Simulated assay, not measured.
Amino acid sequence: MTRLSVNINKIATLRNARGGKNPNVVNVAKDCERFGAKGITIHPRPDERHITTQDVYDLAPIVTTEFNIEGYPDARFLELIQENNPAQATLVPDPPGVLTSNAGWDTIKNYDFLKDVISQLKEMGVRTSIFIGTNPKLVEAAAKVGSDRIELYTEPYASKYAMDREKAVKPFVLAAKIAQEAGLGINAGHDLSLANLKFLKEQIPFMDEVSIGHALICDALYYGLENTIQLYLRELREY
């Protein structure tokens, strides 16, 4: 079964709006696991707009499922990985001021850089994943730089889903098959929701993991966190 990793950035955003510790990021992470999530994802950006550096150190000892830390692999990020030893480090090409991740890596242009970073992460014993689009050549290069997995950037799929879901998913299916043939694991994330998740799972049944934050937290405002996680798990269930 494809694992659900809950991205809790938005919980930290809500907390930071007022300061203090409400909602409590650590408690929410524990609850997500208790309600059935198989992973916790965070993206500690340098400006600490949501997840802070301290959050990383607070979460690392309490996450009992898979802890996934996303970020641009600069010296700060690598230090966080080394000191907190997550199950997975997901490398994203975000410049410091970007609002949210909005593109995948050019694994050919950044080949030497990624190869060096991944080598360092493997020495730490951390599984690596590269945030990437659907270009077949870039997927193939992701394998060549030594990554363990890719995370397919699914915003283009989500944005076109309502118009023509078959057309929207086609490049993702192709990219996933190329990745699988190259020995890469397949994750996916960005703008996945209850509206489009099941179809993606049906078309790429061998996905290892989906990372979902914004839509899931929005749904939780109406359905409650426990019920929402169960709804997402239902969409991922194999019949």
Rank of each mutant, 00 (worst) to 15 (best):
G104L: 05
V139D: 05
E155C: 04
A89K: 11
E155Y: 10
L59F: 13
R165M: 15
I178Y: 07
H190M: 06
A176E: 04
E155A: 15
L78E: 14
E66H: 12
P156W: 04
K137P: 05
S119F: 15
V92P: 09
A87C: 03
I150P: 15
A87Y: 13
K122R: 12
I150H: 12
Q82K: 11
Q82E: 10
D191L: 05
Y161G: 05
S147M: 09
A103D: 01
G125L: 14
V117Y: 13
D106I: 03
S129W: 07
E83Y: 00
P86Q: 03
R76K: 13
D164N: 13
L192Q: 04
L152N: 13
A168C: 08
E83A: 00
D112Q: 02
I118D: 15
D148Q: 03
V145C: 09
K115Y: 07
E181A: 15
P73F: 04
V98S: 12
T64I: 07
K144Y: 02
I150Y: 10
P73A: 09
A143D: 03
D112W: 01
N102V: 12
G71N: 05
I108H: 03
Q180V: 01
P156A: 13
A158M: 11
L138I: 01
P73Y: 12
I118N: 11
I130Q: 11
R149P: 01
P136H: 00
A188K: 10
Q82M: 01
I150E: 08
T107S: 09
D58L: 12
Y111N: 03
P86Y: 02
T90R: 05
P61H: 07
I69K: 02
F113K: 03
F67P: 01
Y72C: 14
P156L: 14
G183W: 07
P61G: 00
I130T: 10
L192C: 09
L99W: 07
F77L: 05
T154I: 15
F172H: 06
F131V: 14
E155R: 14
D94Y: 04
P96W: 02
P156T: 10
V92Q: 13
K170I: 01
A75K: 10
V92F: 14
L138M: 04
T154N: 13
L192S: 08
D106Q: 10
F67E: 05
N110G: 01
K167C: 09
G183K: 03
D106T: 08
A182G: 02
I69C: 06
D191V: 10
P136C: 00
L114F: 00
Q82Y: 01
W105E: 07
A103H: 06
G97H: 02
A87E: 13
K170D: 09
N187V: 00
Y111L: 00
V126W: 04
D74V: 08
R127Q: 11
S101V: 13
D191A: 12
Q180S: 09
P156D: 11
A141V: 14
A188F: 08
Q82L: 01
N68A: 05
F113R: 00
A142W: 09
G189S: 11
N135D: 12
Q120R: 15
V173T: 04
I108W: 01
I178N: 09
L121M: 15
F77A: 06
R149E: 08
F67D: 06
A141C: 12
T154Y: 14
G185M: 10
P73R: 14
E181F: 12
A75R: 12
P95C: 07
P73H: 08
N187L: 05
R149W: 05
K167G: 15
N85D: 08
K144V: 09
D94Q: 02
I108T: 08
P86M: 08
L152F: 11
